[in-house]
Nucleic acid binder design. Structure first.
Lengths: 231, 231
DNA sequence: TGGATTTATGGCATTTTTGTGGCATTAGCG
DNA sequence: CGCTAATGCCACAAAAATGCCATAAATCCA
């Protein structure tokens, strides 16, 4: 699954973007400060980063972050798109010169942002070698997540889960040991009933137990939510 | 030397751009009509093309050209930047959906254009692949692809497929075993024609099954996309 | 311990996604 | 210009995924 990082300090906007991108079936990780982002992005290695230019107190925290990321080997070539509320052309030039790939005005429709992201992802994809790309995977104890195709395996046995299930599983496992509330595990709009999460957890457990009757990694924290127990 | 193609029917503008780009030490080739460009670009294989949207008599000759180029194997992944005098947001989305990489308004300073070009070149450069000869036939299990004439054979029996079908087949088979999303299998607009991929998959399966009733190499991964199963 | 609340479960309804055949439109070519 | 094949589009069918509900079980707290 394509993984996109958002760096935006306005919580409302951040969640708007998160919603929008989730709807495109992309995995989203949000950061609200430059400090969080520069550490987090390196460790969660997203496929693309969406960065608000006017981040933090400084007028151009986003630019600083971009410069920073471009100096770190792991993120030297990370596709970066700037979000800007001001639409002066200097911004665009400055951003591009710092090593960003493109920019989007926050004033326009978010459809534009999606189109820009898609175009950039396509460009990056064009140049992926067919064979030299081993399937990316993330290991959390006995669990292995394969974001590329939204699959998972437990003790090296492939578990046959659906995309919705993967979504929840990934959210749990990515934050292993930490509590995830119902809301945090909800896939789409928060309008849907809470049973949805419950149902998916149920199905996940069933599928894992079919492989390993002793499976206990999904822990329910009564009244709070769920968590993934590292083994 | 980086080689850039300009497609612009206003001679004054064309020469302005040519000057500007030459100043960046880039080699420039200009075309003034869609017809010239579609032939010329294929044969002079530039590193990037700058295309005026309002090319020729039609209001959107540039779009037509882009679509054309995206269907020709040699220019399928050519970096394309649109030049537009109108700056409506629909233009940007439409252009991007046609497979372009970015756009620039002709109203702004040309410095912006240069910055955009540089950003795109940088992105392409990040991932220069040791180009394998695209003319060589490629074998993937029982399947053999012949890029020259866009044909394919299955167990040494020639399958009579069309270019559009070849396109999708190649994308699937070249990434054998890996998931290809709907978006990845289509170059053009994914909003208007979502069934296009489905239709082509359908036809491909039909044609392969006619040869080999047991054909199962195209696997659908529900909610994810399709993949080619190695045999 | 008992009642209130939260979570688990199985089954079923709904929604989403994919497959199929047919037809309309378009591109390519002589 | 007109013919033919390719392509895209649509409506409906089939399959899969997802959400919902009633009820059972578990947990919490007074």
């Amino acid at each position: 699954m394509t993984h996109i990082a958002i760096v935006e300090d306005d919580p409302t906007l951040a969640s708007n973007y998160a919603d929008l991108l989730s709807r495109e079936k992309w995995e989203v990780t949000s950061f609200s400060s430059r400090e969080d982002a520069s550490i987090g992005i390196v460790s969660c290695h997203p496929d693309l980063a969406l960065i608000d230019v006017g981040l933090g107190a400084e007028e151009d925290g986003g630019f600083l972050l971009c410069r920073e990321l471009r100096m770190i080997p792991e993120t030297k070539t990370l596709p970066i798109i700037f979000l800007t509320s001001r639409s002066e052309q200097m911004d665009r030039i400055q951003g591009l010169n710092l090593g960003a790939d493109d920019y989007c005005s926050k004033d326009q429709s978010m459809d534009v942002t999606v189109a820009v992201i898609k175009a950039l992802l396509r460009r990056v994809d064009f140049s992926k070698l067919p064979d030299s790309n081993p399937r990316e995977s993330k290991k959390v104890g006995s669990l292995t997540l394969f974001p590329d195709d939204m699959r998972a395996s437990w003790k090296n046995i492939q578990v046959d889960i659906t995309v919705g299930e993967y979504d929840i599983l990934a959210k749990l496992a990515r934050h292993a040991g930490m509590l995830r509330t119902h809301d945090q595990l909800t896939i789409r709009d928060s309008v849907v009933s809470k049973n949805t999460v419950t149902s998916n957890i149920k199905r996940l457990r069933q599928k894992f137990e079919k492989i390993d009757p002793n499976f206990k990694a999904i822990q329910t924290e009564h009244g709070r939510g769920y968590s993934w127990k590292k083994d």
